[in-house]
């Protein structure tokens, strides 16, 4: 007496049904497709075309040459560094918060904390910059207090207008965003996995190392990439905090396209925008892959 490896008939029928199903245009999604077409595909095409044209409207790749050297390359590197540093720190801090909330907060407190995290995660921009200026600016009360206690942050090279300052401000919204996107993955760790590890002779550390971390890893990477994309392309907060001392791609693109700083450089601005979109697209592709992987494991 033995079992065969067959899939139950009901599952077979379902698979067969799926493969035979004819394609039908999803009409209820038409408004969404139109929205994407008008506000994403159409403008993106315009920017792409603009990046491939010279000032006299002839086709050229020359707008892309500055991306690989000089100040624009440096700006890309700085933006990527800010994206990576703030995403990494935000991911680590946020993951820690998410764990503490998941492990110790009851359903009601969790709901309140989720709401708070959502508010913080969406509190970027000029108001956030001013909040930090009030707290960490050279003449802010906190900085003065620390100075009176013998710790002069500005004398040690800290400035809210520096790379470090920008990172500190970004983490303010990156960490709560991490709480929001990573906590579902933590909640998805099933009690049975922990108990199965125990009954099979594993220690808590064995469970963390061999089960929990590998299961959470795709979600963590996905969340990190989402945070990176946000940090890399943040504009308003950076605009309010920097005064040209930290070259960042979103600000440079804004200046070039608006013609605020240098005129006749809109085509270069378009090529920088395409470069930035390409980087964000790579990050978001990684995010989608990671989400798919982790949802597959949570089935």
């Amino acid at each position: 007496m033995s079992l065969t490896n067959t899939v139950p008939e009901s599952e077979k029928t379902r698979e067969l049904g799926n493969s035979r199903r004819k394609f039908q245009f999803p009409f209820p999604l038409l408004p969404f497709f139109l929205f994407v077409g008008f506000f994403l595909v159409w403008p993106l095409s315009k920017v792409l075309i603009a990046s491939l044209k010279s000032n006299n409207e002839s086709w050229t790749f020359s707008n892309y040459t500055p991306l690989f050297h000089g100040i624009y390359f440096h700006a890309f590197v700085t933006s990527i560094r800010i994206g990576v540093v703030t995403a990494l720190l935000g991911a680590l801090i946020g993951a820690l918060f998410a764990y503490v909330i998941d492990a110790y907060a009851g359903p009601r407190l969790t709901s309140i904390l989720d709401s708070i995290a959502a508010v913080f995660a969406n509190s970027g921009g000029v108001p956030l910059a001013f909040t930090f200026l009030a707290s960490f600016g050279a003449n802010a009360g906190l900085i003065k207090l620390l100075k009176s206690l013998g710790w002069d942050l500005y004398a040690e090279g800290f400035s809210i207008f520096s790379f470090t300052g920008i990172c500190a401000v970004y983490i303010f919204f990156q960490a709560p965003l991490m709480v929001l996107v990573f906590k579902p993955a933590l909640s998805g760790l099933r009690k049975e996995w922990k108990e199965a590890n125990t009954s099979l002779g594993g220690s808590p550390w064995t469970y963390i190392r061999r089960v929990a971390i590998p299961i959470l890893f795709p979600s963590f990477i996905g969340s990190f990439l989402l945070l990176f994309a946000g940090g890399f392309s943040a504009y308003a907060t950076a605009r309010a905090l920097t005064v040209g001392n930290v070259p960042l791609i979103p600000l440079i693109i804004g200046d070039l396209i608006n013609g605020n700083v240098i005129s006749d450089k809109t085509h270069l601005g378009a090529s920088l925008a395409i470069g930035a979109i390409a980087i964000a697209a790579v990050a978001m592709s990684g995010y989608v892959w990671a989400q798919r992987k982790s949802s597959q494991w949570r089935r």
């Binding site: 996995w193 108990e195 590890n197 009954s199 002779g201 494991w297």
Partner: peptide, 19 residues
Amino acid sequence: DANQRDIGMVFQSYSLFPN
């Protein structure tokens, strides 16, 4: 301790490690 008992357990819901 539970992990020293040499007891095998099969759970109600599928408890296989998905990774």
